[in-house]
Amino acid sequence: MTQKHYITTLGIFLTFLLATLAIAPLIGATNISLIKAFSSEIPFKENVDAHILFLARLPRILLAGIAGSALAVAGAVFQALLRNDLAAPFTLGVSSGAAFGAVLSIAMGWNFRFLGVPALSIFAFFGALLAVALVFSLVKVRHNEFETSTLLLAGVTANFFFAALVMFIHYLSDFTQSFQIIRWLMGGLDITDYGTVLSIIPPVALGFVILMVIARDLNLISAGVSTALSRGVNVSRIQKSGFIVSSLVTGTIVAFTGPIGFVGLIAPHIVRLIVGPDLRLLLPCAMMFGAAFLILCDAVARTLIAPAEIPVGVITAILGGPFFVWLLKRKKNS
C-alpha cells in the first residue's frame, strides 16, 4: 500500500461521506427551503425551515453518522480479532447487556437525568459494561494469547442470558412499558438533541484513536496469532485493548440508539471488499462508510412511509442485505 493509494482511497470515501452529509438534511417528510432556513430576516423562533433543519434533522443526522461509524469500526475490529467475518459488535453480548439495563430502567420507571443524560442511556451503558465484564472475566490468557474460542462462547452465552432477563422483565411489564421496550429493542435515532451528540463524541473519538494506533498489530493478529507473536506483536495486550475499546465504543452507541443491527456486520464487509483487509485503511474507510450508510438508511426510514417512521434497523437490513449480495457476486465474477 503506497501513500498515494492510501490518500486517494481515503479521499474517495470522504467525498462520499460529505456528499451524504450535504444531501441528507434536505431529505425528509417536509420540504424545506435552504434559503429560508439560512435567512437572517426571519427570527429563528419563527423560522420553521431552520427549526426542522437545525433542531430536528441535523442532530439526528450527526447521531446517525457517529453511530454508523462507531458500529462499523467496532465490527471491523471484532472480525479481525476473532478472525471470523461473521463477527459483529454485538457478538460478545454488549447489546444484550445494554438492552437489559435499558429495559430494567423502563420497567422501574426511572426517569431522572444525570448531567443531561437520561437514565435509560445510563442504565443501558452500565448493562453493556456488565456484559463486557462478565464475558471477559471468563476468558484467560493462555500461551500468550487470549482464548478467542472461549470468548466467542462466553459472548453467545451472555447474549442468551441477558435476552432471557429482558424477556422476563418484558413479560412482567404493563402495556405502556411493553411498547417502550419493544421500541427500544428495535433501535432508533429519533430521540436526540445536540447534547446527546456532544456527549458521545469524546468516548467514540478516543476509541477510534486507540484502534488506529494498534491497527498494524491488529492486522498481524488477523493473519494469525503465532506469526503475529513471532513478528513482535504483544498479542494478548493488543487483543485485550482491541476487544475492550471496541466493546466500550459499541456500548456507548447502543446506550443512546438501542441495538441498530446489521451496520456493524455489513459495513466492514463492504469496505473490506473494496479496500482490502489492511485495517490501517479499512478502519478509517469503514468509519466514513458506516456513517454515510446509516445516515442514508435513516433518511429512508424517515421518509418512506412519512409522516410515520420505520425503525432504522429495518432499513439497514433491507437495504444492506441485497447490496451486499450484489457486491459479493460482482467480486466473484471479476
Binding site: R83, S222, T227, S230, R272, G276, P277
Partner: peptide, 14 residues
C-alpha cells in the same frame, strides 16, 4: 528470530 508456521490459511484476503 523469525518463525514460520507449517501450513496456514488466512481468514481475510491479504
Amino acid at each position: 528470530i523469525a518463525w514460520t508456521p507449517q501450513e496456514q490459511n488466512l481468514a481475510f484476503s491479504f
